[in-house]
């Protein structure tokens, strides 16, 4: 297990490659789950979220969750698993990850620490796309609205706010009679 600044660069590069993260990504925490230290099987934490990869006999299993979607984490003792909750309405979206998958050789006494750390991070990292959307609704300036819309579309293309951003953009380009951009 390695924390930011002490992660061997070979392991960091291997993990970035396995998860197809942008080359410049910084891994803040890495649990190398291989016996030979290649770090290709791993659990990592970045500023974006938690990523997990495991390969068995050529089959690869990937799992990830972004901080902005994560509501909280619970531990299910009978199943010996962490339960990552990101939708209270739709339980199918939530995910189980076994204790050993998250952190190799994690003993039960440390589980409360893991829960505390993850839940604290999840509660402090807010949905930035949603904040931008609020700014968009508060703004009365057309050019500012256009800029904010672009920021949402470019930086958070998978967020729920993208639809409103596109709508606002079209509306504003129409008002400005900017037909090229409207198209």
């Amino acid at each position: 297990v390695y924390i930011s600044k002490n992660i061997p660069s070979k392991k960091e590069h291997a993990a970035i490659k396995v998860h197809e993260l942008p080359i410049k990504s910084e891994i803040l925490w890495l649990c190398d789950r291989t016996f030979w230290g290649s770090a290709e099987d791993n659990t990592i934490i970045t500023d974006v979220g938690i990523f997990y990869h495991e390969s068995t006999f050529g089959d690869s299993f990937y799992w990830s969750i972004t901080w902005e979607k994560l509501k909280r984490v619970e531990f299910i003792e009978g199943r010996d698993s962490f339960y990552f909750i990101y939708s209270e309405e739709d339980e199918d979206q939530n995910a189980l990850l076994s204790r050993d998958s998250f952190l190799l050789n994690l003993s039960l006494e440390f589980v409360p620490h893991v829960l505390s750390a993850l839940n604290s991070i999840a509660s402090q990292i807010v949905d930035k796309a949603e904040i931008l959307l609020d700014q968009l609704f508060d703004s009365t300036d057309i050019d500012e609205q256009i800029n904010i819309s672009h920021e949402i579309i470019n930086n958070y293309p998978d967020s729920d706010s993208v639809y409103m951003a596109h709508l606002t953009l079209c509306y504003n380009y129409r008002i400005k009679e900017d037909w090229n951009n409207l198209l």
């Binding site: 930011s4 901080w67 440390f110 620490h113 505390s116 750390a117 604290s120």
Partner: peptide
Amino acid sequence: KDIIIKELRKYPQVFD
């Protein structure tokens, strides 16, 4: 990034 590192460092026996 700072939030994450700060929280992980609170539990060096697990995350460090």
